[in-house]
Every structure is written in structure tokens, then in C-alpha cells.
């Protein structure tokens, strides 16, 4: 447990969080290397399967990062994503994996600082939670 390095999958919307991650790079803002980004055209594209499969295959935490409310390139994709994430959290709580392993964040393309901060905070949170029990069982 002491040297536990969580693996985090971050589904990032091309129009905001993915750009914010690039911005964090331009500004050389450091965040934990645990976070692996998968680019999606809209946070609304992130299927429940994508989140659950990530946990099943071994992620210790998964988050979806979309645009700020009202800024979605596709009007309401981010709202759908956050509803989906809320639903998954409830389900994970019920089956004992713990809903806090999945989160939804929102940010704009210019928020490199927020991207780095979110990545750091989420990684620390998962580190405290320890390995994903689904992974341990597998």
C-alpha cells in the first residue's frame, strides 16, 4: 500500500479539457503522471461502458472532464455526461466499489491551471482510497 501508484483514466473533451491539458503543458504546470488522457469529441460521448471497462481492466479511478455549463460545443453533452457519471457513482456505491472512484469535472479550454490542479487532487484522493477492489479481485 505504501508505494501504491494509482492508475487514473481521464476522458477529456477535445474542445475544453483536452485543450486545457495542452495548455497546462504550454505553461509547464506539473501534475502527477498517473493520469492518462483519452480524447473524446464531447464529454457526452463517454459511455458508461467506457468508465466501467476502465475500472474492470484495472483503473483505480476514472474521471470525465467536459466544458463549463453553457459552454458545450454540442449544447448539452456535458450535462448528459454529468448525469451519467452521477448514475455510475450511485451504482458503484451500491456494489461496494465506491462511487468516489469516478468523478465529473468541468473546465474551459483556457484553464490549464485547473486541469493540473484537478489531476493532482483526484490522484491524491484515489491514492488515499487505495487500489480499486475490482482490480484486486481480478
Amino acid at each position: 500500500m505504501e508505494n501504491f501508484e494509482p492508475v487514473i483514466v481521464a476522458y477529456c473533451c477535445h474542445y475544453c479539457a483536452y485543450t486545457a491539458a495542452d495548455m497546462a503543458g504550454s505553461k509547464r504546470l506539473s501534475y502527477p503522471p498517473n493520469v492518462k488522457i483519452i480524447r473524446v469529441p464531447c464529454s457526452g460521448k463517454v459511455d458508461m461502458i467506457h468508465i466501467l471497462k476502465a475500472l474492470e481492466k484495472g483503473a483505480d479511478g476514472v474521471y470525465v472532464a467536459g466544458c463549463l455549463e453553457g459552454d458545450c460545443h454540442f449544447n448539452t453533452g456535458n450535462v448528459r455526461a454529468s448525469k451519467r457519471v452521477a448514475y455510475i457513482k450511485k451504482m458503484l456505491d451500491e456494489i461496494g466499489i465506491g462511487g468516489e472512484r469516478v468523478e465529473m469535472f468541468s473546465m474551459s479550454a483556457g484553464m490549464g491551471e485547473r486541469f493540473a490542479q484537478t489531476a493532482s487532487e483526484f490522484t491524491e484522493k484515489i491514492r488515499k482510497l487505495g487500489p480499486n477492489p475490482a482490480r484486486a479481485a481480478a
Binding site: D22, A24, G25, S26, P33, I37, A116
Partner: peptide, 14 residues
Amino acid sequence: ANLRDQNVWVHSDH
């Protein structure tokens, strides 16, 4: 694979 903006630029300390 975004090795620059999302890797070496942000993890140069590790």
C-alpha cells in the same frame, strides 16, 4: 500520442 504537451512538458520533474 501526445508525448509533448501532455507528458514531457508536465512531468519534467519525474
